[in-house]
Structures are given as C-alpha cells and as structure tokens.
Simulated assay, not measured.
Amino acid sequence: MRLDLFLKATRLIKRRTLAKEVCDAGCATINGRPAKAGDSVKPGDSIVLDLARRRVEARVLALPPKQPGKTDMSAYLDILKVEEKERDF
C-alpha cells in the first residue's frame, strides 16, 4: 500500500493530498530513510512523521482496507511515541 493512502486510511493524516504534501516536504520517513508518497508500506515498517506541531513515531502492524472503521486503528497501527513541539511566537 502507498504511504499516502496508509496515512489517510489509518487517520494519522486526515486527507490524502495533505499526506502527499507532508511526504513531498521530506517530513516522513520509513525505517529511517526519507519517504515519498508512493513508497510502499508493509507490516513491520517504522514510520516517523515530523509535523509542524508534533512528531509521531508508529509501527505498521497490518495493512488496512481502503476505508477501515474508526475503532479498527489499533489492529493496523501501533503508536510508539508522540512528542508535542513547543511553539515559538
């Protein structure tokens, strides 16, 4: 499954276009290497998203169907760490 589709299906990012933009900006890594939106995701992969307000580390447990239910996320994704970033004004 493509990374941008996986991020949308697991609700780590709400829209596929936003997931693609995050990947194109270099804010996503798979197993420690920079990832593009079209890169394949498979069970066992480690994903890190370095977003504007937080950093999320997760492990892929299984590939979800295109539109899984909201309560099914724990079957597909294990959130390892979420770090909130300080906001500088």
Rank of each mutant, 00 (worst) to 15 (best):
R15T: 15
R53W: 10
A52Q: 05
R33D: 11
E57T: 07
L3H: 03
G32S: 13
A75W: 04
V56T: 09
L5R: 03
G69A: 06
Y76V: 04
L3V: 12
D50P: 02
P34T: 14
G44F: 11
F89T: 14
D39S: 00
E57Q: 09
G38N: 06
R59N: 12
T29E: 05
F89Y: 13
R2G: 05
A9H: 02
S46G: 06
V48Y: 07
L12P: 06
C23S: 12
K81R: 08
R53Y: 01
V60Y: 07
A52N: 07
A9S: 12
Y76S: 02
M1Y: 13
K36R: 09
E57G: 15
V48D: 13
E57Y: 14
K14W: 15
P68C: 01
L3Q: 07
R59S: 10
P43M: 09
S46Q: 06
R11T: 00
L18W: 14
T71P: 12
L63F: 02
L5A: 10
V60Q: 08
I30S: 03
K42I: 11
E57M: 08
A9K: 03
D24G: 06
D50L: 07
C27W: 03
A37I: 00
A58H: 06
K20C: 06
A58Y: 14
P65R: 12
L80M: 15
V41F: 11
I30L: 04
K36C: 02
R33K: 11
V60H: 03
G69T: 04
A52T: 14
A62N: 03
K20S: 01
A75T: 12
C23N: 04
D24C: 03
A9F: 09
L61T: 10
T10I: 03
V48G: 13
P64K: 04
I47F: 15
V41H: 14
T17D: 04
L77R: 06
R16I: 15
P34H: 15
V56H: 15
K66H: 10
G26H: 07
D72V: 08
E21Y: 05
I13R: 01
G44M: 02
T71G: 14
R2M: 13
N31L: 05
A19C: 01
R33A: 12
V56N: 08
